[in-house]
Amino acid sequence: MTTARERLRLFITDTFFVDDFGDSDSFLRTRIIDSTGMMELVAFLETDFRVKVADAELLPENLDSVENLVGFLKKKGVQ
């Protein structure tokens, strides 16, 4: 079974056309994600992982790297 981390990395590679990024690289600072990219990412979390993301949770510490996303999903009960 693929892990959440693998699924996230695959999504980011496929959606934002990057091959080379570390799990703790900031998406925003490294320009992996732009203004609409965040929406694509949140939509992916909501459909693929079936979690709800509240406005108050739209924070870099939840969303801005693979590492942060894995942590965020864990909090939401996704392994």
Binding site: L28, R29, S35, M38, D55, L58, P60, E61, D64
Partner: peptide
């Protein structure tokens, strides 16, 4: 006109702080 997900101050900071 930026999407709401970009309007959080912490996100703005990451994006515009380059």
């Amino acid at each position: 006109y930026l999407p709401l997900s970009q309007q959080a101050p912490e996100v703005l900071k990451e994006f515009f702080g380059l």
